[in-house]
Design a protein around this nucleic acid. Sequence first.
DNA 1: TATTTATATGAACCTATGAACATATATTAA
DNA 2: TTAATATATGTTCATAGGTTCATATAAATA
Lengths: 125, 125
Amino acid sequence: MAENSSDICREQCFHPDTVERVSCAMASREDLLAVAELFKALGEGRRMSILNALLRSELCVCDLTLILNMSQSAVSHQLRVLRGARIVKSRKEGKNVYYSLDDRHISMLIETGFEHVREERGDEL
Amino acid sequence: MAENSSDICREQCFHPDTVERVSCAMASREDLLAVAELFKALGEGRRMSILNALLRSELCVCDLTLILNMSQSAVSHQLRVLRGARIVKSRKEGKNVYYSLDDRHISMLIETGFEHVREERGDEL
DNA sequence: TATTTATATGAACCTATGAACATATATTAA
DNA sequence: TTAATATATGTTCATAGGTTCATATAAATA
């Protein structure tokens, strides 16, 4: 996977010092993959609606099925993904399991995401 | 796709006023999908490394192929996804096309993502 | 203990998507 | 105009991931 650069940029089309500087500042492969996994888990319509709901209040699985009109199975599967990515945390109380957003980072991510797309939409006018 | 709730929560296992309140506060389907698309585009390892590089500096495609050791085709394909999601913007100068992050929201999202996964890692100790 | 209820999980199916290859477009230079 | 270079795109293939259905687990209740 190393010989891609051999047939491009034969002439000095690039910027050696910038390339050097940026290369040195790159995050670790581990962190990069972890962040990508985090965003991947956030990047699905149903999961985002679950999170949008959890932005307002802690909710049990049953509440979510009603709010989002999804099957219990589908909700549960998606919650598993969100739990695995440490986007939500859960708390058991009797027969019910209550879910909420993991921490402030998560709510900030979601809110910033909404801000971004809403601003974009404004730009389009 | 509507009859999922009919066979669950027959008894009042849920919280009617919370469900009502949260239901009313839900974002539009349009916004939800847009945000999900945004995060989906952020949620891939290669793309995240492109973005991590762009966090430091505006770069042309050729710079990126060198920094990330990816084929030109792969870089271009991923840049297309990022452009489509309005995560990066481009500027043409002669034969080169320079890419940079779209706006402050994007850098904030990426930085918050890194903070989150690094904090998590600390928690595991 | 037996049953009901709330949630979780496994498997099968289908669609979406990343990688790699070849090729197309656009800009500069000869 | 022709050739070379930088970037973009179309296609094919393999795989990841979401949904549903069926079932398993766990807690409450009879």
